[in-house]
C-alpha cells in the first residue's frame, strides 16, 4: 500500500539543540497514529511540520504523493485540532464549524447544513447556536474536531487534544475520538505524552525522544518488544538490568538470558516477575495498589519491580526469591 503521509529525512533547528533529527516516517491511509514522547522530544514540532506551520530546514513531506514541504497550511490536505482548541470566541459554535467552508465561498445555507451534520457526527447536534464559552471542555474539544473535519482533510492533526481535560473525561473522550475516527475514516495523527492514551488509541505508535524516532510499530509490538532503552522505560514500567554478553547470552544479576553479542542490558516488565523462583533478592518497598501489590526488590546492584497478587504476604526487609519469565525479557542494545 502506498503511504498517505511520507516524511523523508526531515531535520530542523540546528545548532544549540536540534529539534528534529533526520526523521523518516511513512503512515498508511485511514490509520490512527500517535506521536508519543516527553516534552521537548520534537513531537509537536513534527506535527507543525505536517500542518504547514513550520517549514523544515531539511527533508521533504509528501502527503498523498504530493510534495507539501513548503505548502501553506490552507493548501495542504491537512487540518489541525489545536491544544487550546483555538475556537473563535466571538462566533457561534455553528459559525466556527462552518468557517472553513465560508472561506471557500460556500453559501450560508449549505455550510450551516454541513456544520449541523458534522456536529451530529461528533455528538453535539444541539450546540449549533451556542457560543464556545458556554460549552464544557470536552464539548469544545468536539467542536474543534468538527471544525477541522468539515474541510475534509486527508489527514487530521491533533496536538495534545485531551491535554486540557481532567483524567476521567480524558478516558471517555479517548473512546469517542477512536469511534469518530472509525466513522469518518480519516487518518488521524495525534500527539501526546500520555502512554496510556497512546496505547488506547493508536494503530501505530511512534515514540520520539530528543528529536529522533526511537521506535515505531503497533502498540503491542512497541510495548512487548521495545527497540530501545528509552522506549522500554517510557512505554510502561521496566526494570533495567545491565549485563555482559558471552556465547550467545547476557549475564545479569538476575541470571542469564539468550542475547546477541551487541546486547548491553535487559529490561523486565513488572508483570513478568513473580515470587518463588531462584533469584535471591531483598524486598525494599511494598506498595498496595488495590488489585495488586507493587514490590521493589534489590537484586545485586539493581532494583527490580514485581507485580504480585494483592493477597500475597510480603513486607519490606524480607529476603525473597524471584522468578523472571525468560520469554518476555527484553534485550536492549543501547
Amino acid at each position: 500500500m502506498t503511504p498517505l503521509v511520507s516524511i523523508q529525512q526531515v531535520s530542523h533547528g540546528f545548532g544549540a539543540g536540534p529539534v528534529l533529527q533526520d526523521v523518516t516516517l511513512d503512515l498508511a491511509p485511514g490509520s490512527y497514529t500517535v506521536l508519543l514522547g516527553p516534552s521537548g522530544s520534537g513531537k509537536t514540532t513534527l506535527l507543525s511540520v505536517l500542518g504547514g506551520f513550520l517549514t523544515p530546514e531539511r527533508g521533504r513531506v509528501l502527503i498523498g504523493g504530493q510534495d507539501c514541504t513548503a505548502l501553506a497550511p490552507a493548501r495542504r490536505p491537512t487540518a489541525t485540532v489545536f491544544q487550546d482548541y483555538a475556537l473563535f470566541p466571538h462566533m457561534s459554535v455553528g459559525a466556527n464549524v462552518g468557517f472553513g467552508l465560508r472561506m471557500r465561498g460556500v453559501g450560508r445555507a449549505e455550510r450551516d447544513r454541513a456544520a449541523r451534520a458534522m456536529l451530529e457526527t461528533v455528538g453535539l447536534g444541539e450546540a449549533f447556536a451556542r457560543k464556545p464559552h458556554q460549552l464544557s471542555g470536552g464539548q469544545r474539544q468536539r467542536v474543534a474536531l468538527a471544525r477541522a473535519l468539515l474541510v475534509e482533510p486527508a489527514v487530521l492533526l491533533l496536538d495534545e487534544p485531551l491535554g486540557a481535560l481532567d483524567l476521567k473525561l480524558r478516558r471517555q473522550m479517548q473512546d469517542e475520538l477512536k469511534a469518530i475516527q472509525r466513522r469518518v475514516g480519516t487518518a488521524f495523527i495525534h500527539v501526546t505524552h500520555d502512554q496510556e492514551e497512546a496505547m488506547a488509541l493508536a494503530d501505530h505508535i511512534v515514540v520520539m525522544n530528543r528529536g529522533r524516532i526511537e521506535d515505531e510499530g503497533t502498540p503491542e509490538r512497541v510495548y512487548q518488544r521495545p527497540r530501545t532503552r528509552f522506549t522500554a522505560t517510557f512505554m510502561g514500567e521496566s526494570s533495567i538490568l545491565p549485563g555482559r554478553t558471552a556465547q550467545g547470552a547476557i549475564t545479569t544479576a538476575a541470571g542469564s538470558f539468550p542475547a546477541p553479542p551487541e546486547a548491553t542490558a535487559v529490561a523486565v516488565r513488572p508483570e513478568h516477575v513473580a515470587l518463588g523462583g531462584d533469584i535471591p533478592a531483598t524486598v525494599i518497598d511494598v506498595v498496595f495498589q488495590g488489585s495488586y501489590k507493587r514490590v521493589t526488590a534489590r537484586v545485586g546492584d539493581s532494583d527490580v519491580l514485581a507485580r504480585v497478587g494483592a493477597e500475597t504476604p510480603v513486607a519490606a526487609g524480607e529476603a525473597v526469591r524471584l522468578a523472571i519469565d525468560a520469554r518476555h525479557v527484553i534485550v536492549l542494545r543501547d
Binding site: G51, G52, F53, A72, P73, A74, T78, A79, T80, F82, A86, F88, F99, G100, M103, R104, R147, A148, V151
Partner: peptide, 9 residues
C-alpha cells in the same frame, strides 16, 4: 493558525 489552516487568506 487555525484561520489559516481552514483556508482563510
Amino acid at each position: 493558525k487555525a484561520a489559516a489552516d481552514l483556508g482563510a487568506s
